[in-house]
Design a protein around this nucleic acid. Structure first.
Lengths: 229, 229
DNA sequence: GTCTATAACCTGATAGAC
DNA sequence: GTCTATCAGGTTATAGAC
């Protein structure tokens, strides 16, 4: 018998219980793999109360995702801007930009392991009804990082950078899915080393000299949208 | 015997129709996102006939996946062994090994776009009932490529190579999901250049000099298994 | 092998008492 | 805000006629 009450304080509302339960279950089994009844049971609340607080399953899913995704993206931009300010007029080292990009995601994985699965799921193959929310939340972020990278990689074609950034995101996402099986969160300096290794891998790919010509490449949208329903 | 004859109506059996429909729909919407009724309708066959031919939804899903996954992996190994034979006693260049690893996957994406989505899905976050089949099919493959890479990257710690290979797989998977939106399959030399760029990105990361020490790293299983049901 | 009918259960959503 | 009861429709799987 498993009791699901992460925070035992008295202001742990039905709403919060539901969001936490949804984070766990949606992350583990995906949108279609979990029903409202299962969510209500996991949260220890009534089924009727569940639909009352969010109106629909879709709305609950969206809110569950955005709750942490928003703050994570804000932190990303904050780190980048801060680094740029400190660097003054000089372009940032590529590995510094990549660090700002993935550090908040890495940290989020340590603090909220079950959200990490949901995040990876939604950036890899988001349900269609979530796609617009992701785009809106992620686009300004992507643009600012893209600009910063272009400044530090003079001569790199726009499209090639898009492609390589996509590769880097892939490395990050697969890592995210595996994070909770790794011996992390034990030793802070060890964690830092793993993060550095990932930053290093991605930076090496971004900075490498391209072998072929890809002049007719088209921009790659990310993440993709799929048909559903 | 009966090679895949996707549209020739004469021996395009109910079984094959179902597999093709399952490939499309499962790839697009995932295991939980598609019902047997939907599959039967898409395949243009009766619902009763659907369960008759495979016994269960799980079995249909597994067979749909393995049908192409098996031949893809065989081709991977064949390319690697052929390259090793040609090289004689010399260790292969890393980019050559990576090429053997991802070329069949790339090609498969050109030939069977809807399978590519299913493949990416299952390597990224496979349903639990599929995990054993994947492991059994993929493990010998991974081991042989891992050995080849170690030979070409002397001094690289086992665990670090596992980690970096995981990064590379991530790059590949995200690319797979986006393939059908790219201007590929038009010009063969263009396709080849895109493939080379991916090989190049991954090889750069694999070969790069590591910044921190990760001596206590543990082997990373891939792909992950999740609880379901 | 193919089809219909149906069993047994789960789905999201809602109406209305408390 | 929380609960019960219920809706209309979905799910997989099976039994048995053709």
């Amino acid at each position: 018998m498993k009791k699901s009450a992460p925070k035992l304080s008295s202001d742990y509302t039905t709403r919060d219980r539901l969001l936490d339960a949804a984070e766990r279950l949606f992350g583990l089994r995906g949108y279609d793999g979990v029903g409202m009844r299962m969510l209500a049971e996991e949260a220890g609340v009534n089924l009727g109360a569940a639909t009352y607080h969010f109106g629909s399953k879709d709305a609950l899913y969206i809110e569950t995702f955005l709750r942490r995704f928003r703050t994570m993206n804000a932190k990303r931009l904050r780190l980048l801007r801060q680094a740029e300010e400190e660097a003054g007029a000089n372009p940032l080292p590529v590995c510094k930009i990549v660090d700002c990009m993935i550090r908040p995601l890495f940290q989020s994985g340590l603090e909220h392991p079950s959200f990490q699965l949901l995040l990876a799921r939604n950036l890899f193959m988001p349900p269609a009804f979530l796609h617009e929310a992701i785009r809106k939340e992620l686009e300004p972020n992507i643009m600012e990082f893209h600009t910063a990278l272009l400044r530090s990689l003079p001569g790199m074609p726009d499209n090639l950078l898009h492609l390589r950034t996509m590769f880097g995101m892939g490395a990050l996402l697969v890592f995210s899915v595996q994070m909770d099986r790794m011996p992390l969160a034990r030793d802070a300096t060890f964690n830092e080393n793993v993060l550095k290794e990932m930053v290093h891998f991605i930076s090496a790919g971004l900075q490498s000299v391209s072998p072929p010509s890809l002049e007719e490449w088209l921009p790659v949208p990310f993440p993709p949208d799929f048909e559903r329903r």
